[in-house]
Measured scan of single mutants.
Amino acid sequence: QVNIAPGSLDKALNQYAAHSGFTLSVDASLTRGKQSNGLHGDYDVESGLQQLLDGSGLQVKPLGNNSWTLEP
């Protein structure tokens, strides 16, 4: 069960990665100043990332080996 409060997208993504045990490689300029609506409930990694990114204009991309990145 994930419980991440709304706020900074950077912070939300870092909390989610730490909670879910995956690696997220992101260029900080992509997420700077963006906000997230947070995340509450049970999600697989990709669904949770998509939910956190909702409205940010960013997309999640798998890199393999439980690693992910973001792209515009």
Results as ranks from 00 to 15, higher is better:
Ala28Asn: 08
Leu39Lys: 02
Leu24Phe: 11
Ala17Gly: 04
Ser29Asn: 13
Val60Pro: 15
Lys34Arg: 08
Asn37Ala: 12
Ala17Trp: 04
Gln35Leu: 14
Leu39Gln: 02
Leu49Asn: 00
Thr31Asp: 04
Thr31His: 00
Asp44Arg: 05
Gly48Trp: 06
Glu46Asn: 07
Asp54Thr: 13
Gln35His: 13
Ala5Glu: 12
Ala17Met: 10
Pro62Ser: 14
Glu71Ile: 14
Asn66Tyr: 08
Gly21Ile: 04
Asn3Ser: 11
Leu30Ile: 08
Gly21Met: 06
Asp42Leu: 15
Ala28Lys: 11
Asn37Trp: 10
Phe22Ala: 07
Asn3Thr: 11
Leu52Trp: 02
Ala28Phe: 09
Ser67Val: 14
Glu71Lys: 05
Arg32Pro: 03
Thr31Trp: 05
Gln50Ala: 13
Thr31Phe: 06
Gln35Lys: 12
Ser25Glu: 14
Leu53Ala: 05
Lys61Gln: 05
Val26Gly: 08
Ile4Asn: 01
Tyr43Gln: 03
Asp42Arg: 13
Thr31Asn: 02
Phe22Ser: 01
Ala17His: 03
Gln59Arg: 14
Lys61Leu: 08
Val26His: 11
Leu9Val: 04
Leu9Cys: 04
Val60His: 09
Leu49Met: 07
Tyr43Val: 06
Pro62Glu: 08
Glu46Ala: 12
Tyr43Cys: 07
Asn65Gly: 11
Asn66Ala: 05
Ser56Gln: 06
Gly41Trp: 04
Ser47Met: 10
Gln15Pro: 02
Phe22Pro: 03
Ala5Ser: 11
Leu30Gln: 03
Ser25Val: 15
Thr31Gln: 01
Trp68Phe: 13
Leu53Gly: 00
Ser8Val: 05
Ser36Cys: 10
Asp44Gly: 07
Asn3Val: 11
Lys34Pro: 05
His40Tyr: 13
Gly55Ile: 04
Gln50Tyr: 11
Gly55Leu: 05
Asn37Gly: 11
Leu58Val: 03
Ala28Asp: 10
Gln15Asp: 13
Gly41Val: 03
Phe22Arg: 00
Gly21Asp: 05
Leu13Tyr: 03
Leu49Ala: 02
Ala18Phe: 11
Arg32Cys: 14
Glu71Ser: 08
Gly48Cys: 04
His19Glu: 12
Ser20Val: 15
Tyr16Gln: 00
Leu63Gln: 07
Leu49Tyr: 01
Ser56Cys: 08
Ser47Ile: 09
Gly41Phe: 04
Gly41Thr: 02
Phe22Lys: 02
Gln1His: 14
Pro72Ala: 12
Tyr16Trp: 14
Asn3His: 14
Gly38Pro: 02
Ala18Ile: 12
Gly7Trp: 02
Thr23Trp: 09
Pro6Val: 05
Gln51Leu: 14
Gly57Ser: 04
Ala17Ser: 07
Asp10Trp: 15
Val26Trp: 15
Gly55Cys: 08
Leu58Gln: 00
Ser20Asn: 11
Asn66Pro: 00
Gly57His: 05
Leu39Trp: 03
Leu49Phe: 08
His19Lys: 11
Trp68Gly: 00
Gly55Asn: 05
Ser47Lys: 11
Leu13Cys: 06
Ala28Arg: 12
Lys61Asp: 00
Asp10Met: 13
Pro6Gly: 08
Glu46Met: 14
Gly64Glu: 06
Thr23Ala: 07
Asn65Ser: 09
Leu30Gly: 04
Leu24Gln: 01
Asp54Asn: 12
Gly38Asp: 01
His40Arg: 13
Leu30Arg: 00
Ser56Leu: 09
Leu9Arg: 02
Leu30Trp: 06
Leu52Ile: 09
His19Arg: 09
Asn65Phe: 10
Ser56Met: 08
Leu13Gln: 01
Ala12Ile: 09
Gln15Phe: 09
Ala17Leu: 06
Pro6Glu: 05
Lys61Ser: 06
Tyr43Met: 07
Asp10Glu: 13
Lys34Ala: 04
Lys61Pro: 02
Gly41Ala: 02
Gly64His: 04
Val26Phe: 15
Ser67Ala: 13
His40Trp: 11
Leu24His: 03
